[in-house]
Write a protein that binds this DNA or RNA. Structure first.
Lengths: 192, 192
DNA sequence: ACCTGAACACCGTTCAAGT
DNA sequence: ACCTGAACACCGTTCAAGT
């Protein structure tokens, strides 16, 4: 028996991973500094050394984590149309959000900051250069609204936040179909 | 000086009103049973008599309050088109949600129950009878997603949930323009 | 620099008791 | 039937102290 495995040092990244795991598994209301400390084999107060603003900072970081997304516009080959780019951003955002339903309510309500804000800026710039021009900011807002709304409805229907969770439904198949369908309609509408 | 004004008896309705006031004014995280009691001139524990499941029931009731909406299909005169009905439902839902940004995160994530569920049923039935037929349920989901997403983005941009709330922006004018525009596009898409 | 332990003010909820 | 008061387990955060 090794007497002491040298404890993996705490880090912002490990903290956020553990927090996501708790929130997804037990709900945001049960994500507590003390429980977070337990999961990391550490006293709750150790977290404050890596997130100085405490729980407020943690919540911000979680929202950022599921909202910051990156899409590669594809350097080689033909430049993609703005329609293709819009589709790629919408899909990437949706999957990122669906991966962590436990913190969805944060992402839906908190104003984007840091990496999330940069992500939106990149998206706007790509769409602008791909042909949308000055219509890009409004298009990004419309796409964001569509993605956020779709994911909200999907998660509601999955019964995720239900205290009497009979079945946490896995009907993501139909959800994706409807998502793609609505996305087509929205992109078509953005063209007019 | 009247020695005792006979205290207005507590009621579910008064509790919910006070809770909305606190949530909108100070944020959901500061809505606490004790503060709620204070606002109602009562001990916190009195609330449990009217909401037996305590804070859980309170949260459910708040979500229900901003999600349950009623639209009169207009008995006299010509029957409205499903397009007009869809517009009316979307507008009514949006205003109900924007009225209480403090509990928006609940409405976005909690599966609809009680009055909220009935509201969705009515909307589906009206759209079905107005000509959408079996396409009504999917249309209602699309409309709900659009409304929820739009309001989420609007509230984010208003800086409502921002701890460093420089200005709680009142740019609802532009928000409404964009909302109506996207709504037109969506309804057009539902027709195809 | 990084983590601990004790402490403080506050929270949700119970339960017996008052009227 | 409706509300209170005391109590319990738990929470976020501080601060001085350890290494």
């Amino acid at each position: 028996m090794p007497a002491k495995r040298p404890p993996v040092p705490l880090s912002r990244e490990r903290i956020i991973d553990a927090a996501l795991h708790i929130a997804d598994g037990q709900g945001l209301r049960r994500l507590t500094m003390r429980r977070l400390g337990d999961a990391l084999q550490v006293e709750a107060m150790a977290v404050y050394h890596h997130l100085p603003r405490g729980k407020e900072a943690l919540m911000d970081a979680l929202a950022e984590h599921v909202t910051a997304v990156r899409v590669d516009p594809g350097g080689s080959g033909a430049a993609p149309s703005w329609q293709d780019l819009a589709r790629a951003w919408a899909r990437a955002s949706r999957t990122a959000l669906l991966e962590h339903p436990g913190v969805l309510s944060l992402a839906l309500v908190k104003p984007p900051k840091g990496a999330a804000l940069i992500s939106i800026g990149e998206q706007t710039e790509q769409l602008r250069e791909a042909g949308l021009g000055d219509a890009a900011p409004a298009a990004v807002r419309a796409l964001r609204a569509y993605v956020l709304g779709s994911v909200a409805v999907e998660v509601q229907q999955s019964g995720w936040a239900d205290p009497d969770a009979d079945v946490v439904n896995a009907r993501t198949a139909e959800g994706e179909r409807e998502f793609e369908q609505g996305l087509d309609a929205l992109i078509a509408g953005l063209g007019g």
